[in-house]
Nucleic acid binder design. Sequence first.
DNA 1: ACGTTGACTCCTA
DNA 2: CTAGGAGCCAACG
Length: 123
Amino acid sequence: MNKQSDLMEIDENFYQNVYAEVAKIPPGKVASYGKIAELAGYPGAYREVGIAMSQAASKEPLPYHRVVYKNGALAPDYSFGGPDRQKQLLLEEGITFRSNDLINMEKHSWPNDSDYEQLTLFD
DNA sequence: ACGTTGACTCCTA
DNA sequence: CTAGGAGCCAACG
C-alpha cells in the first residue's frame, strides 16, 4: 500500500515509533521534534521526542542530528559533545544555514509535500 | 499515585 | 529578529 500505514498498531512504544521515524530522515534533510512526534502517532508530545533523542544518543545509532527545532535552531550546546558538533555533521550533509545559525527550513525540512504525494482521490 | 522534569512550541513584548 | 513565559505530554522518582 501507500504511505498511510501509520494509523494502525502504533501501540508499540512511543520511543520505538520515534526512533523509527528518525531513521527515515534522509541525509541532507531535517525534521522538527514536533513533526517526528506527529509521524510517530503522538502529536503534541514533541517534548518527549527531545527526551527520546537524548536517550538515543547513548544507545541507538540514529541520525538524531537531523532532528532540530521547528524554527531551524539546533539542539542545546551541551548535547552532541560540543557546541558546533551537530552543525558540523549537518554541514557535511549539505545542509545550508541562514545568517544566525538557523537552518534554511524551506529548503531542508522533511517530509516535504512532494514526499507525501497525495492519495486523496475523492473524485 | 502525584509532582517534577525536559534535545519543544507558541504567543507576546 | 531576540528574549521571556506559559502550555503540553509521557517518563521517573
